[in-house]
């Protein structure tokens, strides 16, 4: 299914939870914050929150900054 992931359209497998998506992307869940359609997904809901077709997903991490 198509989603918008970090600003880019992308095909991902159907029926993924947030945890599943992070696993699919090879991203460690402890290292990121996730927003779907501008709403934060709490870390303890990663396993039960499903990604829907057309969702706008932001996956953010810490980078160097001042």
């Amino acid at each position: 299914m198509r989603v918008i992931l970090n600003g880019k359209e992308r095909d991902i497998p159907n029926g993924l939870t947030v945890d599943g998506l992070l696993n699919h992307l090879d991203v460690r869940p402890q290292r990121v914050a996730v927003e779907i359609n501008r709403v934060i997904v709490k870390r303890d809901r990663f396993a039960e929150t499903y990604v829907q077709p057309g969702d706008t997903i932001e996956i953010l991490q810490f980078v160097g900054g001042g």
């Binding site: 990121v32 953010l60 810490f62 980078v63 900054g65």
Partner: peptide, 17 residues
């Protein structure tokens, strides 16, 4: 130490943290 928050670069091999 200060850090910023940005989109994950899915191609990056190394990470700040």
């Amino acid at each position: 130490v200060t850090v910023a928050l940005r989109r994950v670069d899915f191609d990056a091999k190394d990470h700040l943290m």
